[in-house]
């Protein structure tokens, strides 16, 4: 790839993330919880379960059901958003569930529900990615057995340049946004969406940049989890 380095609106390199912050165990009532921040995009996720299924008819005899709810706070955007479910949040809740589903041992908890609630508190692009990152940490924090963590980020095209982690003006003025979620152990892309006009080659390049970017998110997730179980004075580097 022959990329001439150019300056982005906020001065980042083409493959540079905004500041990443991840914390685990941030809520008291939820069985597991996490905070994830990517620049000015902030989400908190809380997990309840495995618990009894209501309504009962959704119950599955051989496995737990995974339910996800992505919600954006009315104050998370520049212009106030309408509270409650929107068609957008229904779709994002669905793709979020499909993104996380492969890594959870649902078969370990028949006839139960695992509920994942994602609350976007600040929105500056990639909210679904930040929500997924928080959700996976919250699931791990709740002690739900998982095959791996799913890490998510987006890449896109702005002014003809292919860049990682679109934010701010890049989001409103950019041509293409492509979020992915990645299951590293299996090398599987578990979420992929795109809008905007690209050639076949650009599409493939953006996918590769986004998938490559999830590596750094994955590291941030792992270190947040490790930090929670750190024993003071001991270096926890068994992984």
């Amino acid at each position: 790839m022959n990329i001439v380095e150019f300056k982005r609106i906020d001065g980042r390199k083409h493959d540079e993330f905004r500041p990443i912050e991840a914390r685990v165990g941030v809520l008291q009532k939820a069985d597991g919880s996490a905070y994830f921040r990517l620049g000015n995009t902030v989400a908190i996720a809380g997990v309840y379960g495995p618990r009894k299924v209501h309504p009962r008819h959704e119950e599955q005899l051989d496995r737990a059901i995974l339910r996800t709810r992505y919600n954006m706070a009315p104050f998370a955007t520049t212009e106030r958003g309408r509270p409650g479910y929107s068609r957008r949040s229904i779709e994002i809740s669905m793709v979020t569930r499909q993104a996380i589903n492969p890594v959870i041992f649902l078969e370990e908890f028949p006839k139960t529900a695992i509920d994942v609630h994602i609350e976007v508190l600040q929105a500056d692009a990639s909210t679904r990615c930040v929500g997924i990152n928080a959700a996976c940490l919250a699931l791990a924090d709740a002690g739900i057995p998982m095959r791996d963590l799913v890490a998510s980020c987006s890449a896109g095209k702005v002014n003809g340049n292919i860049i990682l982690d679109i934010a701010g003006k890049e989001d409103t003025e950019g041509e293409v946004d492509l979020p992915v979620a990645y299951y590293p152990k299996k090398k599987h892309v578990t979420l992929l969406q795109m809008d905007g006009i690209v050639t076949r080659e650009e599409a493939k390049e953006i996918v590769k940049l986004a998938v490559g970017g999830t590596k750094k998110i994955y590291e941030a997730q792992k270190s947040a989890l490790r930090k929670k179980y750190e024993i003071e004075g001991e270096k926890n580097d068994i992984y």
Binding site: H188, V189, T190, Q193, G196, I197, V198, T199, R200, K204
Partner: peptide
């Protein structure tokens, strides 16, 4: 005269490898 992509959406509860994604992009065109 050119064919361009304008949207993508993955569905289903299993992932796709990058190679599979690329193959599907070519097929879609």
């Amino acid at each position: 005269g050119d064919v361009l992509l304008c949207s993508m959406q993955k569905g289903g509860s299993v992932g796709l490898t990058v190679e599979e994604l690329e193959k599907i992009i070519d097929l879609a065109i």
